[in-house]
Every structure is written in C-alpha cells, then in structure tokens.
C-alpha cells in the first residue's frame, strides 16, 4: 500500500521523501494542473531536480496534468506531457481524454493514472478509460466505502483513494461552482475559489469573507475564520442559516485503513500541494507510522491518539470527517 504525498515545491517534496512517502505527486508551473496557484509548482528545471532526488531515494514521482486543454493552447498540454516524460516522471496523472490519448500514443511505456478530475465513479466509466491504457484510477471523493469496495472487487485495475486533506464534496471534474462565481474553475483554470477574488472586510465587529463580491461567510470574534471556499460558506435556506453544502472540515480516513488495505487499494493519496513543507512533513510522518503499523499486524490495527491529534491540528477548522466513505455523511 503506497503512501502518495503532495508537493508544491522542491522543499515540500524533500520533506515528503525524508518522512517516508513512497511516491510524491507534483504539477508544472502553469494551468495544466488543478493546483495552479501563484508561487506554487515546478518549472522544467525543478521538475528534473525533483525526479532525480526522488529516484536517488528509490521512490516515485507522479506528475499531475489534470486540467482540460483549451482550444487555442493545446500545445501547452502536449508540452506538459513531453516535459514530464523528459524529466523522468514515473507516472502521469491525466483527466482530459485528448491528453490521455496523446500520452498513450506518444509515450505508451510511461504509466498513466486517471486523475480524480476525470470523475470515474463507476465500473463502466473505468472501462471507458481503459482504451487509453490507464493502469490506475484515482477515485472521486463522492463514493461511499461500500461503493469503493464494489469497484475494488469488480474492476481489475489498481485503485487509489484520497486518505486525507481538503474535502471536495462534489464529483470532481464536473463542478462549475467556482467558474459560476469567478469565471475560473478547476477544469479550465486549475483553481477553485481563486485567491485573487477573495476579499476580507470588517463590519459591525464581524469579519466578512467574499468571493468576487458574494458574501460567503461572517465570523464573530470568537470564531475561526476559514478560507472562503464557496461550498463551505454559511448561507440561508428559508431563513435558516447554516453550512448549506458542507462545513469547513478535512477528510481523514485513518480509521478506515484496515478496510482499505483489505480491499487491495494500492495507494493512499494525501491532498495538499498548496501546503507548506512543514505541513507535508508532519502529515507524511503520521501516515508513514500508521501504514507501517498496519502492515505489521493488519488484524490488530488501532489508531493511535497522537496521530489523530496531529491530524486534527492540520485540518480545516480543526475538524475531520470520514466524508462520503461513511454513509451517514451523505
């Protein structure tokens, strides 16, 4: 069972490797990946440096090229694939069928993983993407554990699941909420609720967060003010004010580890390429310990209190959830 950690920079990548990641995933410094944030990601030179470092330590590098190509700049996505292969990537994480097709035809020997942004939630969809020779599918976070189990038992393909980090509650790759508010979406711009549209104001002692002018939430002085990701705001339905779509909380599947292991899930993905090297280091350390403990004696695995403590400290609003894996969440 692989521990796959995020890195938005070479220092974060080194932190992940030093603390026990089996593989690290990164993106290029442009809109070809779903974490296209200012100051984040690697250029061609850094990508080469990252690949060399990872390989020196006997680990693997995955490169996410998982946004959808624009009509007038298709070459950028082609070049991203070329660059990743040239740098020595072990796997490409792809979503656009055009990019998948290009990679499959041009570099048939380089492993292709189906990005969560391709939104393959069922056996027929996974079958569809086999035509591009994908060897692994990253499952969307909308599935329950029961559904993950059914896929693991019926599809003869490696499965990767999200184990920890920000929780997308919508089927990834088909969510247009961000472009509805700002014009920029994960699919087209590699960003959700982009920072350039965020504004903080204080009114009558309350802190207000806005996204492109739309009020996402108001916080009293004793409340923790979170980033205004639009699906995690407090809105109103028939006069009742609450987190209409989702609370600010992080996904944490530590307690599901034995079950995921039993079903033969090949990889646990930690979300957070936008996070600091220190965050990546702490997370990686905990998950390394948890996986090692599990592998030593799967039947008697127990979640250690100090792991949960560290993870809660690294979570949005200090809260964690099993998300859709747990049916009651739905």
């Amino acid at each position: 069972m692989e521990l796959l950690c995020p890195a938005g920079s070479v220092p974060a990548l080194k932190a992940a490797i030093e603390h026990g990641a089996d593989a690290v995933y990164v993106g290029l410094k442009d809109e070809t990946n779903a974490r296209h944030f200012a100051g984040l990601n690697l250029d061609q030179l850094k990508l080469k440096e990252a690949a060399d470092y990872v390989h020196r330590h006997g680990r693997k590098l995955h490169v996410a090229i998982n946004t959808f190509a624009h009509p007038n700049s298709w070459q950028r996505w082609q070049e991203a694939v070329d660059s990743a292969v040239k740098a020595g990537a072990d796997a490409l994480i792809l979503a656009d069928m055009a990019v998948l097709g290009y990679a499959a035809e041009r570099y048939p020997k380089v492993e292709r993983h189906l990005s969560v942004q391709a939104s393959a939630t069922n056996a027929a969809a996974i079958e569809f993407y086999r035509q591009y020779g994908v060897s692994r599918v990253v499952l969307p976070r909308v599935l329950s554990l029961q559904q993950v189990r059914a896929l693991a038992r019926t599809c003869n393909i490696d499965l990767e699941v999200f184990a920890f980090g920000s929780l997308c509650i919508m089927a990834e790759g088909r969510c247009y909420l961000s472009s509805y508010f700002t014009g920029e979406s994960p699919n087209t711009a590699g960003a959700c609720s982009p920072a350039a549209f965020v504004r903080w104001d204080e009114h009558d002692g309350l802190l207000e967060s806005r996204l492109n002018g739309v009020l996402i939430d108001r916080f009293a002085p004793d409340e923790t003010a979170g980033y205004p990701t639009l699906c995690k705001g407090r809105f109103e339905v028939d006069g009742e004010r609450y987190h209409v779509l989702e609370e600010p909380t992080s996904l944490n599947t530590l307690s599901l580890l034995p079950e995921l292991y039993k079903e033969g899930i090949v990889s646990l993905k930690i979300e957070g390429r936008q996070r600091s090297p220190a965050y990546v280091a702490q997370l990686t350390k905990v998950w390394r310990q948890a996986i090692d403990t599990l592998l030593q004696d799967p039947a008697h695995f127990e979640v250690a209190a100090n792991w949960q403590q560290v993870l809660a400290g690294l979570s949005e609003g200090s809260q964690t959830t099993l998300g859709a894996y747990h049916r009651a969440w739905k």
Partner: peptide, 20 residues
C-alpha cells in the same frame, strides 16, 4: 444551470435528514 453533483443530498440535508 446544473453546476455540481455530490454524493450528498442537499435537499435532504436542508430538512435535517440523511440521504438514506
């Protein structure tokens, strides 16, 4: 416009019910 689909049912949630 249909903008997103989730594992969660938001209408049920708005009535304090679970999807099941």
């Amino acid at each position: 416009l249909p903008l997103a689909w989730s594992g969660r049912c938001f209408t049920a949630r708005s009535e304090n019910r679970s999807k099941d």
